[in-house]
Nucleic acid binder design. Structure first.
Lengths: 208, 208
DNA sequence: TCGGTAACTAAGCGCTTGCTTAGTTTCCCT
DNA sequence: AGGGAAACTAAGCAAGCGCTTAGTTACCGA
């Protein structure tokens, strides 16, 4: 009964697009709930009703609540990494790479702020095995950012004391968006993105 | 029976200084557990055994788990605010105020990283009333930082596009320390503090 | 000396949790 | 037409949760 003709089992508080597939709706509902209340404060019943299913319906598609978190966390990390890589590939110079990666990665944190929150703040609730896998992706983000800085230092456009410290600060500015952003804020993703890109240029001494 | 002569009721995993008062030990154990696993993943039994008490012993001193979080969150916010104010009072110029506030506030996030994590990441689990009280303290932090920037812009030492955006980025760099710091890291609080202070000077265009 | 008070524990209550089981419906392949 | 797999629900189980109750111990002022 994929499309019931009359009413759905829990007419309550659906938090996901009713036209999406069941797996997609479960991921959306889980992202919504995990971002809002955190992994442990979210019940499998929250997720089920958010996806328009009975409590048992979750387990047709995912073996556990943690498996849902892992699916969300892994795909979130992968799309963040993909976005960073393509932003860097698009910039001909380190300065343009830095601006593009800061702007687009910031915009992603705003537009996908629920997924971003799960990615940045819920990954330590994964099982040790899943956590280790995701940590590898996080280290890759870090070194992508550091490599941009190192290239800019090498060709003389950037001047930074320590590229690891500076990369961490740049990522802090971006990651923290997922903490403070709320959809009630009136600034657009593009505005926040270009603000952070401009701050990045100052941090690497490329404004002067 | 404040000092049992033989063995304590739960000889298990005490996480707090056994010489401190019971209330102090409860706060320490709660800070430890909330920082490590988050508010909802922490059980009152974790806190009790961390403080060397039976599960019921918590309720002699605190009415609920949330009341413990509130006590921790409020006193944490208050000591953070006190620290910011005194750092600003100690600096004769906006540039020195910025350096001091960034260095000391960063050091606090490192040295008190368990309390800092609770302060920065657990406050949304408070009741609406308690949350509102703490939000007032957080806004005060924000405007303290913005005021430093505005004074530096006014006297010509800083050049920033938007003091609110820049203040947010500066606080992001500091707050994010509570996310990434771990006691296994070999850098000292002083080193991390002066790194962040130097980054701050670059962000406000005071390095020239 | 002794009554009151505060700090504490053993036991457990009622509820919610993650997840399972057994069964129903729908659809598709032959 | 009819058999089987897949998607789903109703009901509920065992465990763990926050917190309470009833009682014990230790201490302190009169």
């Amino acid at each position: 009964m994929p499309q019931p003709t009359t009413t759905s089992p829990s007419a309550g508080s659906r938090t996901s697009d009713p036209d999406a597939s069941t797996v997609e709706r479960l991921l959306q509902a889980a992202a919504h709930a995990f971002a809002d209340k955190g992994f442990h404060a979210t019940t499998t019943r929250d997720i089920a009703s958010g996806a328009g299913l009975s409590p048992a319906g979750v387990y047709v598609h995912f073996g556990s609540k943690e498996e849902l978190l892992f699916a969300l966390s892994r795909s979130g990390h992968e799309s963040a990494l993909r976005l960073m890589r393509s932003a860097i590939a698009d910039g001909p110079t380190p300065a343009e790479q830095l601006v593009t990666v800061m702007a687009r990665f910031t915009e992603w944190h705003v537009e996908q702020y629920q997924v971003a929150r799960v990615v940045q703040y819920e990954h330590h609730h994964l099982t040790p095995e899943h956590h280790a896998e995701v940590l590898g992706l996080r280290k890759e983000m870090d070194s992508l950012m550091r490599d941009v800085l190192d290239r800019g230092v090498a060709d003389g456009t950037f001047s930074v004391d320590d590229s690891a410290d500076t990369a961490l600060a740049l990522l802090s500015i971006v990651v923290d968006v997922a903490r403070w952003y709320s959809p009630t804020i009136r600034r657009t993703p593009g505005e926040i993105g270009s603000t952070n890109a401009a701050l990045a240029l100052r941090l690497v001494g490329a404004g002067h």
